[in-house]
């Protein structure tokens, strides 16, 4: 009798966990061990110091690393430069990606969409570094671009794009473009074509319909794509290293250098924490300002 009661009690006690709890356990495990703990570890390291003579890391609690970031103008300059490069790349990617996403989602018949989508995703399966290296051969002086143009227009033309900011932006736009296309595609796909007809019916020419109906209704996709793309670009360090000059290094390069060549892990950690904090804060303000909830309805 007593045993029966306790087994009943246990059966009642179990479901008191939130519904679906066991489904998220694997994901939670991964997040805790590969995101939360590393971030905490990095945050802890950022308060450590490095012995200037031996170069050894000393467990400590010091704000010195953060002071250095705030006081020295170089970090602010690199941060603003990263913002500029990432912002410009995002803008160009948006202009390129929107027509592609729109055509794919709203113009191409449904049964042909998967194939075209695959074509956009396939480059993503190729190594990022390989694709970036490709641009070196394309952009370098006397490279493929120069020969191509000289072949069309006789004479010796050199663009000298490699190791410039333009090269960095081209590289970023190329490598991360699918991140922008896919959310825009998803948003235009769910766009009801009858809304566009209704708009035309009420007297709006195509460009007015785009401005008043298509764009507002696909804005969630635009925001998602912009955010994904911006974050991906802002933190990368391979593209500026391979395609940029010394004046095009970004925050990712600074951090990578501290962990690599300079071997100053505490300072690198402080840089990483600062950047993460600024980006997260910026996104929060951005999303509050954009009033995403109203858009999603």
């Amino acid at each position: 009798m007593l045993q029966q009661q306790s087994s009943v009690a246990r059966r009642i006690a179990l479901p008191s966990l939130p519904a679906g709890f066991w489904f998220v356990v694997p994901a939670m495990f991964i997040l805790v061990f590969y995101l939360v703990l590393p971030v905490l570890l990095v945050a802890t390291y950022s308060f450590y110091t490095t012995d200037p003579v031996t170069g050894l890391i000393r467990p400590d609690f010091s704000w010195a690393n953060y002071e250095r970031i705030i006081v020295s103008p170089i970090y602010r300059r690199v941060f603003l430069r990263s913002l500029e490069i990432a912002g410009l790349s995002t803008l160009i990617a948006l202009v390129l990606a929107y027509p592609v996403g729109y055509t794919l989602g709203a113009v191409v018949p449904r049964q042909r969409q998967p194939l075209l989508l695959l074509l956009i995703i396939i480059p993503f399966w190729t190594s990022y570094i390989v694709r970036t290296y490709g641009w070196i051969g394309f952009l370098q002086t006397g490279g493929f671009l120069d020969s191509l143009v000289s072949w069309v227009i006789p004479g010796r033309i050199e663009f000298g794009l490699l190791y410039t900011r333009a090269a960095v932006i081209i590289g970023f736009v190329h490598v991360f473009l699918p991140l922008m296309i896919l959310p825009i595609y998803a948003a235009t796909r769910s766009l009801d074509p009858r809304l566009l007809e209704a708009s035309a019916d009420l007297g709006a020419p195509p460009w007015r319909t785009f401005w008043r109906i298509t764009l507002p209704l696909t804005l969630p996709g635009v925001l998602a794509g912009t955010t994904l793309f911006f974050i991906a670009v802002f933190g990368s360090f391979v593209t500026p290293q391979l395609l940029g000059g010394t004046g095009d290094l970004m925050v990712g390069n600074l951090i990578a250098d501290q962990f690599g060549e300079a071997f100053n892990w505490p300072f690198g950690a402080a840089l990483a924490v600062t950047i993460t904090a600024v980006v997260v804060l910026g996104l929060l303000i951005f999303f509050r300002f954009a009033n995403v909830e109203r858009l999603y309805g």
Partner: peptide, 20 residues
């Protein structure tokens, strides 16, 4: 002549109201 230059107006089957 496209719809936006015609003196007609349509009430659609699913109403097609602008959700935003």
């Amino acid at each position: 002549t496209p719809p936006y230059r015609r003196p007609t107006s349509m009430v659609f089957q699913n109403y097609a109201l602008f959700p935003h």
